[in-house]
Design a binder for these strands. Sequence first.
DNA 1: GTCGCTCGTGTTCGGATGGA
DNA 2: TCCATCCGAACACGAGCGAC
Length: 336
Amino acid sequence: MARQSLFDDQARVVKSNRLVQSKMNWTKLEHRVVAMLIAQLEKDDKEFEEQRVYIKDIADLSGRNGKSLYDQAEEICQKLLDQKIHIRTQTDDGRRRYKGYNCMSSCEYVEGSGYIEAKFNDDMQPFLLQLKRRFTQYNLKCFMQLSSQHSMRIYELLKMREGIKYLRLGIEELREVLSCEHSYERFADFKRWVLERARGELWDKTDIYFNYQVEREGQTPVRINFVIKENDSEKEKEGGSKNEDANETLIQSGQNGERGDIGVEGKADEGETPTFNVFAMVLDEMTQEELDTYSETHIREAVSSARQKVDNDRPDDGAANKAIEAYREALRRVRN
DNA sequence: GTCGCTCGTGTTCGGATGGA
DNA sequence: TCCATCCGAACACGAGCGAC
């Protein structure tokens, strides 16, 4: 009798935000195997146990030919054991902290068995088990269908901010998270092979899609503002398109050249009126030290007055541009 | 005019795939 | 298992464009 797959359409991957934001130089196959292992974990598990990932399930979920996967199973085990996760945070006094982790404590494949047996390293427990807050969850099937590891990582990052509908990342930071600091050196190639490809893939295959704005200082791109949208059957009715030119929108440096004083050209959200949680965007940008320093009331007041100012100053801008401006203005007000 | 970018096109390399 | 083919990733190059 055929073995029943462990995964249905509702299978979900749940991991801590710190893990989502970590640097991991994995191939798409390694991402897939780890995602399938994570999807088998129970939220109340207190420790890791040996888990199995069937090669046939990898092939079925990713739409690949399983034949070559069986040939690669031993190699996958070796690479999973070798792979590291690199997490950068800050200490309480603002110093940069780096910590590296081994993802797996054991990984085994027996020829003819049809499955890989693996166990997560106990160091991974804070990132995968008993997660109460600051975690990200997404649909395993969507993730498995993505054909580029960069699309997979971007999907995770955007799912992390799906509630806020907005993610702002420095380009160097994004390159590091995607492990492509030394490839796609020209931004045009990074845009073509990483951003545009992910945009197309997420549009076609997942439950979210995104547009983005490139923020520049002079002509040099420095940051990317992702605007995240739900991807459901309604997108056809809305007339949305993955080819809409929101990604062509540029944010140019202000005339005084001051870093962060940014004007806006074009509209990221033309034709749509998504809601943006500016308060959450501001919290996201603040350091832990700032969060400890300023009261919630102070931050909320700054956000409220910034929104009013932007509404008055830029009545014709779209919701995304207003939100970005309000967020920047609110941050200035919080810190002054 | 210079610089830095985008865009289009072509090439190379390596892995995936499928048929014999 | 071997081999031919396909495809994606990465890179190079030149033309054109806009900002400074």
